[in-house]
Nucleic acid binder design. Structure first.
Lengths: 193, 193, 193, 193
DNA sequence: GATGAATGAGGCTTCATTCAT
DNA sequence: AATGAATGAAGCCTCATTCAT
């Protein structure tokens, strides 16, 4: 009975929101623009989210979840710290190539003072950082002065910052190739080990 | 005399704008709120800036200029790379203590995809990074693979990111004390040298 | 069987509509809220009423009909005017106790300039008032200057106004007890006889 | 400096709001309709009231204040209760002739369950009713069973209800002439004395 | 030079209503 | 017969900006 929810529509809304937030900022991504870009009625959005804020929160949440999964995945694939970081960093770069909006979106909102990260996801991320630190210490691969905060700053934050600087073409290079990956990886290892 | 009064007004406007942008975002910092907080008529603002955008651009420009000056200053004070980085980092931390709004503001807008950094300032910053790189290479203190981009990412971007993560209390530490400074400095040096 | 289920649904819709109109006003009683409260699909409502307006009109109509029936009933039960008024007033008070929403609803919409009372019901009410007047005159119980309008204003309007003032606790009494009934009855009789 | 506030505009807004609320109800009196009718920009309204609700509250407050003043005035002019009621009732009728919207507006909102009367005005009205009751008792003119609530219901509420019933032409008379005044006065006195 | 009254476009959100299923 | 997904107009409100004073 009744029509089935058109999942495509929701997906289009999310994509449109991300794209518009990335290019126009939170304030510049108006509901009407999002709806128009998604080819959906303005009111439709509110059948799935109680407010624009909640839509963006959800977007941030699900994108951060991808990071959490990336971190989890990396630890399943290897026990060597350099390898773990490589996996994570490669995933970010891959992410940047296949879905550049998403990495821009993350970059834009992770830093925003108005969008506090969901407590649950935050603790998952912290938990993963602690786990990585433990692996490193257990295998004597990590500078003992390194904290989970540093793991986060170099394993997550720095690659994202790097990628976005490249995307912004800040230093007249926008390459996100193998050389760039190696560069990031090398510095991260130098910093933490 | 009249000019002096003027300057105060403008200064108050700038401070109010920064504070409101930091706490409410660009969209949440309306002209009327800024004017009210600054104790100035709404229209007054338009005698100095053609638009709100231009006001914020100018704010970003002048705050970035402080960074340029910080970089310039650091090179005048020492020729040793570790010392130079220490000076810069100490200045950022000092900045964070005395004018936290400003460092938050920089953090919020530097990364924004909507506020492109003034071309002139950008090249100044790049120029300073190149200069620092040269000093480092001349004194054999720098990993030769390090580029000016890396100098920027670790000399400017990373300290600001670190400070803001601490301010946001992301890992349950909001300390910006000597230990924090040493920590940042140590990692930067490990990464670049 | 299916029909019975239907009737329940419709009844639930009506009750929900009344409750929401009373507590949120006509504008605050949205179809979706009514449907949700009634546990019914939004579209269902439109199988019985062509519009929200028509639903409310019908609600008003059927509730006013109860008043007409109350008036009719009272005349069947007695020929003495005081008795007739007593019956009517007691019914209103009883009504207020058992179904407070309804008396509030009547109060809210009877006075509304947007919901004109159905012509048919209006003439029924007028007819009843005339009938009561006739009884009074026939038995020499009524001040001859009293018109059917006065019968209405004191037999119907005043009790409803009184009850609602008490419900609103306007004068710090919300009692609707026997004393209140006696008080109303006494004044009505003093006014009309 | 700067333009002077155009008091006419505010007055036009108030009049338009009253007229539209009377004819379309609170919900039907939209900001845009009010602004259009008043010949004023939509946003202008918000320079004087923080919300639509507050505008209507203020309207209700100021109109109720007229009633308070009417009650106060009446007691200054006479010490005889019949005279006091006559003055009040005459004022209401006069009011109805010169400013019919206002009396309709009062009628519409006084009874509304969504617009609670300002506590301050309420106590003023109660105070006046008590004062009138005292005068009546002091001069042995009042039925001792009569409370201030009754004074209100017959001195204020009933005349307004009567006038609005006439305006609505409920019993095919819309006269608000001397006869009507005498009729109301006579019944009120019969009821309370 | 400075003010703040006034504007109206545009933002977010809700709503009555329709109609495919 | 009944559902509830989908619509888009309209509601309330805020905002950057203008301009008479």
């Amino acid at each position: 009975m009744a029509r089935i929810i058109d999942e495509t529509k929701l997906e289009r809304i999310k994509l449109a929101a991300i794209e518009l937030i990335v290019s126009n900022g939170y304030g510049g991504a108006s509901i009407s623009k999002i709806a128009k870009m998604a080819g959906v009625a303005e009111g439709y959005l509110y059948r799935h989210y109680p407010s624009k804020q909640e839509l963006v929160k959800d977007l941030l949440r699900s994108n951060l979840n991808q990071i959490v999964e990336t971190l989890e995945q990396s630890q399943k694939e290897s026990e060597e710290l350099t390898k773990i970081f490589e996996i994570v960093i490669r995933l970010f770069f891959n992410f940047a190539k296949t879905e550049p909006h998403r990495i821009k979106f993350l970059f834009a909102l992770m830093n925003d003072y108005n969008f506090v990260i969901d407590e649950e996801i935050k603790s998952k991320i912290i938990y993963q950082c602690i786990a990585i630190k433990k692996i490193g210490l257990a295998h004597n691969q990590l500078d003992p002065q390194i904290s989970e905060e540093d793991i986060y700053l170099f394993g997550v934050s720095y690659p994202i910052v790097f990628i976005n600087h490249r995307i912004k073409n800040y230093f007249d290079t926008s390459e996100l190739d193998e050389d760039a990956i190696q560069k990031v990886l090398r510095i991260v290892i130098k910093a933490l080990f």
